[in-house]
Write a protein that binds this DNA or RNA. Structure first.
Length: 449
RNA sequence: GGCCCUAUCGUCUAUCGGUUAGGACACAAGCUUCUCAAGCUUGGAAGCCGGGUUCGAUUCCCGGUAGGGUCACCA
């Protein structure tokens, strides 16, 4: 039996940020590794900026990533306890009500609660960074509540952590300077001090704070672009943590098995979209064929529908293997489809006559090659079109003798109308014998003019 | 600016005083059925600077520099 208790304390003031996800992942791995309890606590003390919509998004995205928790709370639902503790501090003269002019609304008088700062040196041991010391006198008598029934974050956090028996506070290093304040409140209230672990923040490509300017920060936008949950999860976990085994590709279970807070790095890491893409490609390749095909067809169909091109499910399904090794993210497929990269599978291509011959090869020779290939392919029984390898075998000898490029380029270009595409055998296999011969004829006709 | 934290290839990192400083992403070249993609092979690429400690420092200590964080009646 473990007594470890951690928390996910996001403030619902925006859509689930990748930083929030990373915080949750680290807490999750630690808690699950040690059989601890995870408490999701929505830090909604800022009533003006918090909203249920954001809270729901955070819950939805964390679930999408595969994370879970054992208890759910909202800070604002715990205010009566906060008020009680605030009053206790005031009664003991460890805090006091202070009548001052409002900073937010100049001219208006408010009664905030200020901590009576004992002004001492606070030292705490961080699991990731070791000993950290602060002289708290410079903090003066800091504010802990806007009013007796309206606590500020630093106060609410300490009370909630204390009441919920939190044993490990795992959070980003932006909170490291909050820690001495919180320890002061904690000591005044008599709560035990939890273990602290402050991990470094991840940075944007220019090493500044990751923001909308340096890249996407919302988990939902990665999801919308077609990143896979296990890929984002894997990347986020290994950004700032290295598994002892040295493995870079790890499932959630494997990460739990290998995770230790002491292996979390001390320096900030740049969020590298290229590496995320690599992870995503890996997980895309690992998808079950049927699942991949279903999603692939969905994305492709949306593009075709949008452009009014007739949809052919069977052809699209045949395309799946080609798509599979051309994309890293589903968005890549969307972009390819919108750029008409796959249109030739569904409709006649629009080749440019001048580009049918391979560079340096005459039109006359090209016509001759195309005629020969046409003979070979037309002699090939329909059943052989079920296998690209047999189509290849049919023309391979001729192409080898006459120059592969001189033969294969016009073949492929005639079938696709594109300078870049999968090989002609694969294409012929997918569009079938009839279309293959028809397209060769069309190319021949263009060249004859 | 004060305080706190950090510092190895372009990026993510390994190294826990002695290594030809290893790996991954990205990049380049070559190969593999014309093009593209994938794959395979090969290659270039790093210890911020200055002092110590030590027989020996990337590693330990100090200083500098740089970057980040934080200095709210936000969280």
């Amino acid at each position: 039996m473990s007594s470890i208790r951690v928390r996910f304390p996001p403030s619902p003031t925006g859509y689930c940020h990748v930083g929030t996800a990373r915080m949750a992942v680290l807490n999750y791995l630690f808690a699950r590794k040690h059989g601890g309890v995870i408490i999701f606590r929505s830090e909604d003390t800022d009533k003006e900026r918090s909203s249920r919509e954001y809270e729901e998004d955070i819950i939805e995205q964390l679930h999408w990533l595969g994370l879970s928790w054992d208890e759910f709370h909202r800070t604002t639902e715990l205010v009566s306890t906060h008020t009680k503790m605030l009053q206790k501090l005031i009664d003991e003269d460890k805090a006091y009500l202070s009548e001052e002019e409002s900073k937010k609304e100049p001219g208006k008088m408010v009664r905030v609660v200020r901590m009576r700062n004992p002004g001492k040196v606070v030292t705490f041991t961080d699991i990731i960074r070791g000993e950290i010391t602060f002289d708290t006198t410079e903090l003066k008598d800091f504010t802990i509540a806007r009013a007796i029934d309206d606590p500020l974050y630093n106060f609410a956090v300490v009370v909630d952590d204390g009441e919920m028996g939190i044993t490990h506070v795992i959070r980003g290093e932006d909170h490291i300077s909050n820690t001495p304040r919180q320890i002061l409140i904690q000591e005044a209230l008599g709560y035990p001090r939890p273990e602290y672990a402050h991990y470094p923040l991840h940075l944007g490509s220019d090493r500044s704070k990751l923001s909308k300017r340096t890249g996407d920060v919302a988990v939902r936008s990665y999801r919308e672009k077609g990143y896979l949950a296990p890929a984002l999860l894997n990347y986020l976990a290994t950004l700032g943590w290295t598994a002892p085994s040295g493995k870079e590709i790890l499932s959630l279970e494997e990460m739990i098995g290998e995770f230790e807070l002491t292996d979390v790095h001390k320096s900030g890491a740049v969020f590298d979209i290229e590496k995320l893409n690599w992870y995503n490609r890996h997980y895309l390749q690992a998808m079950l064929a049927a699942d991949f095909a279903a999603e692939s067809n969905k994305v492709l169909k949306a593009s075709f529908d949008a452009r009014g091109i007739p949809w052919d499910e069977a052809k699209a399904t045949g395309l799946v293997p080609i798509i599979r090794d051309h994309i890293s993210v589903w968005d890549d497929l969307r972009a390819l489809a919108d750029k008409r990269e796959f249109d030739y599978f569904f409709m006649e291509p629009q080749p440019d006559a001048s580009r049918i011959p391979q560079k340096g090869v005459s039109a006359a020779d090209t016509i001759r090659h195309l005629e020969c290939v046409k003979q070979l392919l037309s002699a090939l029984p329909l059943s052989d079109y079920a296998d690209a390898e047999r189509i290849k075998a049919a023309v391979w000898e001729y192409a080898g003798a006459e120059g592969r490029g001189a033969v294969l380029w016009p073949l492929r270009y005639s079938l696709t109308g594109l300078e870049k595409s999968p090989d002609p055998f694969e294409v012929a296999h997918l569009i079938g014998k009839e279309a293959t011969l028809r397209r060769i004829d069309a190319a021949l006709a263009m060249l004859a003019i």
